[in-house]
Design a protein around this nucleic acid. Structure first.
Lengths: 339, 339
DNA sequence: GCTCAGTTGTACATCGTTATACGACCATCG
DNA sequence: CGATGGTCGTATAACGATGTACAACTGAGC
């Protein structure tokens, strides 16, 4: 164990509280005593015990960030941004992953590490609105990220997924594509309106006067490269002949491209591909990836600021849905060409 | 604030300690009282305040993992494994990144979040042995990962980088390659023996009786895809004509491949490429990547177990260098072909 | 009925910090 | 010279949990 306030006080010949005052830069300490205390602190190598401080203050300065999967670069990049933003507000980030499993997500929202974390930023996958209703207020502020929308009194930060998806699809229709597949519908939820990116796909096709061919929707189990490749192969195996693919995220788009290339289908000549997330990896494939780029920095900033704002008093805040910006980044996977 | 032991004790009509005994499953509590206390706990929704418990016990159950960059999938994947392993030992992981900057690395080793974390797993880049000598024992156990070796009394877990690099180079020479470039030497340290993968490259070339052409070593500033591409371009621009590339890590290898392809150089026909790390992304490029695959699960497991072992008493442990296994995974980027 | 041992539960101190309340000191002023 | 008010510092009580020491109760054995 290191030295405590008491040890320092003893050595400096002052009271414990005076040392505390020096440490925290409180007023009413003579420069002389202050100096004496400082010397004692240096000599003993005293450093405050944050656990004790937190117990006393009721705050820990730690916020948790729970994402489905760190292996997905989108979340890794987002996590990095959150950590940096939090540091700027003097908060530390405790990172956890849920594997996108509902039970783990529920666990995390309900007093995960009680009293150790001050607040939680969660990017859910399977979580349902009903899971949120039982949550208690003293578990601290909760901010939700991601594609889903919830009818629960919590801050939600997400780009306008429907509009973003429509932008992506519109880009494809603008290239003359007519049979646009959607890859990445979660099997169970494919038909639900909660699936915002899929809804955007439908809406935009209808708006463009194109048939909304549900056989071009490929369900997947997960959200990774393998799932994208598998879904692409499944589509082709069952005879679908899309001339474009809009994937739920970049990883699946990359998997799909790999599957296409392996079967000798040329990208973008025969099939254009658009992803979602703008992960760095998408710029470096043999065919760089056109994608919807959510403003990750803004998402991280807003999420952290929201948690911090709720922690620092101003309790008058109403839960809000905040929509950061996004852009469509066009690259080789949808490069125009002469057919 | 939630309910405390005191509140529960009051409601159940017993002492605080008895409630504590129930919560911790201590003996000497009648089933009857136990039941009464449980009911009170449920009614009030009591959950232990871990901060207080930690203060009392002197442990927090949190270990920190500091990696250079979460955006590098290798570290993201490693972090995921560490989190899971730690959870199995009832530890939570606090994740931080150092951007590979020495000052941040030093900061992290020296009482980062004092008393909040029980131990630290660090993957350093720029850290020097001298930085470690001033560290105090009461900052808790420290385990070092990564390519570097330190003459300091701490556990170090890393694969045999020299041997692994030699394996990679031998694979290339076995394919008949003779002008094998190395991409990713840190500019300042390129000449130092500390650069283990580069040393492996030299040793294997000499062993194979090949010239060790230093003009085929490309220095970089960072460790990302852009750095790999830039280094590759720099090599080619200055007239080097390698027939193979061994990159410090997969990201740089992927960047290099992209640069080669953009210049019309065919991979693997004209230039074979080997990376290091075995990130999932390497399997999905247009040209899948041959790479050295460190056993990430073993690294994570060993690191966590080492920290936990030191925390749970057995102080007789001497610092050790542990070398987990690795394998060479051959894929398309070094596929044999007829020239 | 009394001691003794074993069980069940309580009171109090403690971890290291900060907040509250108050005492000691100084100079100033009437 | 005594009252006033500011400065500087101290003593003590929290925060919520756990460990120690001990008290109260039970039943068995004589």
């Amino acid at each position: 164990m290191g030295a405590s306030l008491k040890d320092v006080a003893h050595l400096a010949g002052v009271s414990v509280k005076t040392v505390s005052n020096v440490v925290n830069n409180h007023p009413h300490v003579t420069p002389a005593t202050r100096e004496r205390v400082r010397r004692a602190i240096d000599e003993l190598g005293y450093r405050p015990n944050l656990t004790a401080r937190h117990l006393r203050k009721g705050r820990t300065g730690i916020i948790a960030l729970a994402v489905p999967e760190l292996g997905n670069p989108y979340f890794a990049e987002l996590a990095g941004a959150v950590i940096d933003t939090a540091a700027r507000h003097d908060y530390t980030v405790l990172l956890d992953h849920t594997a996108g499993r509902r039970e783990k997500e529920v666990l995390v929202t309900q007093g995960f590490r009680t009293h150790v974390i001050d607040g939680l930023i969660l990017s859910p996958i399977e979580l349902e609105t009903s899971d949120l209703l039982g949550r208690r207020p003293d578990d601290g502020p909760l901010v939700l990220l991601g594609e889903r929308e919830y009818e629960a009194p919590y801050d939600q930060i997400a780009i306008d997924n429907v509009a973003a998806a429509r932008t992506a699809v519109r880009h494809l229709t603008g290239l003359g594509r007519r049979r646009i597949a959607f890859i990445g519908a979660r099997r169970e939820t494919a038909r639900r309106p909660a699936h915002l990116r899929l809804r955007g796909w439908r809406e935009e096709l209808l708006a463009a006067g194109l048939p909304c061919d549900e056989s071009l929707v490929a369900a997947t189990d997960g959200y990774g490269r393998w799932d994208g490749a598998a879904a692409m192969n499944a589509l082709l195996d069952r005879g679908a002949r899309p001339d474009a693919v809009f994937a739920y995220n970049d990883l699946m788009a990359l998997g799909a491209i790999r599957a296409l290339v392996e079967r000798g289908v040329r990208v973008p000549q025969e099939v254009s591909v658009v992803g979602f997330d703008d992960i760095e990896e998408g710029r470096f494939g043999a065919v760089s990836l056109t994608t919807v780029a959510p403003d990750k920095q803004a998402i991280a900033r807003l999420a952290v600021e929201r948690v911090v704002a709720r922690l620092t008093g101003t309790s008058g805040l109403r839960p809000e849905r905040i929509q950061p910006g996004y852009t469509l980044v066009t690259r080789e996977s949808t490069a125009p060409h002469t057919v």
